[in-house]
Each structure stands twice: as C-alpha cells, then as structure tokens.
C-alpha cells in the first residue's frame, strides 16, 4: 500500500481586529433612534389614541413648553434638592457607620443586627412614619431618601473595608502606620471601588424614593408632576416627566463614573 503523505499547511496572518469596544456609537445611537421612530410611526399611523400613546414629537413639544414656561425647572429643582440632600446625608452616614462597623468589633456587634433587620424593609413603607415624626414638609422626604441611600453605602463600605488584602495592612503596620492610619491610608482607599458600587445603588435608590415620596405627599416635584398629569390624562406631560427621570438617572451614573475615574487610582479602568 502506498504511503500517502498529507501535508496540511495552516497560515495565520495579520488581520484586522475589531475594536475592543464592540459595536460603535453609530449602532448605539441607531438603536435608540429606531425605537423612537417606531414609536412615532405607531402613534401617528397606528391609530392609537393620543391619550394612551402620544408621539415622541408631542412629548418633546410638551417638554419644551414646560421648560419655557418654567414648570420644568420648578419641579426639577424641588426634586433635585430632595435627592441631593438625602443622597449626601445617607451616603455620608453610610460611609461612617460602615467604616466603624468594619474596623470595630463593638460597633459591628451593635450595627450588624440592626442593618440585617432593617435592610429588607422597602424604604417607602417608612414614609408615613417619617411624616408623623417630621411633618409633611421636606424633612420627611429627605429622610426617606437618606435612609434608602444609607444601606447600600454602609454595606458596601463594610464589605470593602473588611475585604482589604491583609497583606496590605501588614505592610502598612510594618512600615509604622498607626491603627487610625491603617484605616485612612489603607482600608478606605482599598474599599473605594466597592463603595462606589454602593454609591451607584444609592443614586438609583434616591431617584426611586424621590418619585415615590412625591407621589404620596408633595405639591411639586417630578413625581408629583407624573401623578398629577396622570390624573388629568395629560399623557404627553406624564411622558415628558418620565423622560426627565431617565435623563437624571443617566446623568447621575455618568457623574459617578467620572468621579470614580478621578478618585479611584492605580487600576486599569
């Protein structure tokens, strides 16, 4: 039998590689534009009553009217003040409490069961109680947002600080760091990425709670606008307010990402 010699030759050559980011911004923009266009068509040609689904152009016109008429800025300001105050208070206390619980066994024993018991409560359920304590004004709304923002940050800070590489702590102590310096110069910086995950959750929580709180007890704000427009069947206004919420969510995510890039150093982003 003849011996057959088969020679397979495989050549790997240079070839164009697709950029790391995958599909470019064009497709991303087209995805959004496509949905808006389909919506516009459905609303205009599909015979859907405007009360159910006004076309995006009508929503945009409404948004413009709200902006020029000043209503948009009034409700935006009302909501933003609540969000920002609640977020700052909640995350500030969250960082402090989470840090203490992570570095002090006593604080941990005090705080851990309290957090475990209260974390699962849907925070909006506390609003009536807060209104009872703080009145129907701003304080109760800020408080409920602060409570909502507190938990993810406290839990994130605790996890991040406890999870600090023990070798880094050893290195710091061996170089002469005091227990306080170990916290400020090692544990907190090491925990920052996890804390930022908490900040992002807290921002989402703040948005959710401001709308809920304004729907329950407020005379202005984005949440109030949505509820009120719904009651009056002003669907374009309702959708305009929702668009504003979406923008707020996207902007807060971008803002936090930008801050994280500035603050969290020394890692490949």
């Amino acid at each position: 039998m003849a011996t057959e010699v088969r020679r397979d030759v495989v050549v790997l050559e240079a070839r164009a590689e697709r950029a790391e980011g995958g599909w470019g911004p064009a497709v991303r923009a087209a995805s959004l534009a496509g949905v808006v266009a389909a919506w516009e068509l459905a609303a205009r040609l599909g015979g859907i009553p405007s009360v159910f689904l006004p076309p995006p152009t009508a929503v945009a016109a409404e948004l413009l009217g709200m902006a020029t008429g000043g209503e948009l800025w009034r409700s935006l300001q009302a909501s933003l003040v609540r969000i920002v105050l609640g977020f700052l208070v909640g995350t500030g206390v969250g960082v402090v409490v989470g840090t203490l619980a992570a570095v002090s066994p006593l604080a941990e024993a005090v705080v851990d069961p309290l957090i475990a018991a209260t974390y699962p409560i849907p925070k909006i359920a506390l609003l009536p109680l807060l209104v009872l304590w703080l009145g129907i004004g701003e304080a109760s709304k800020v408080a409920v947002i602060a409570i909502g923002a507190f938990f993810p940050v406290a839990v994130g800070a605790m996890a991040g600080i406890r999870g600090t590489d023990p070798q880094l702590v050893r290195a710091a102590v061996s170089l002469g760091a005091s227990p306080f310096q170990v916290v400020t110069k090692v544990r907190l910086p090491a925990a920052l990425p996890v804390m930022f995950a908490g900040f992002r959750l807290a921002a989402g929580m703040s948005l959710l709670l401001v709308v809920s709180a304004e729907m329950i007890a407020a005379a202005e704000g984005i949440g109030f606008t949505i509820l009120h427009a719904g009651d009056l069947m002003q669907t374009p206004k309702l959708l305009a307010a929702i668009v504003v919420l979406s923008a707020l969510g996207v902007l807060s995510t971008w803002g936090l990402q930008a801050l994280e890039r500035r603050v969290v150093r020394g890692r490949a982003h």
Partner: peptide, 21 residues
C-alpha cells in the same frame, strides 16, 4: 507578594513609611 498599595504611585509607595511617620 510585594504588597504594594495599588492606588499609590511608585514614589508614593516608597514614601509611605516616612509619610505615616
């Protein structure tokens, strides 16, 4: 395992001991 502080530059890592002192 080196145990360098990942958020500090080379210079700031080296200066750490003097900084805490």
């Amino acid at each position: 395992e080196f145990a360098l502080f990942p958020w500090r530059t080379v210079l700031d890592n080296v200066a750490f001991g003097l900084e805490v002192r």
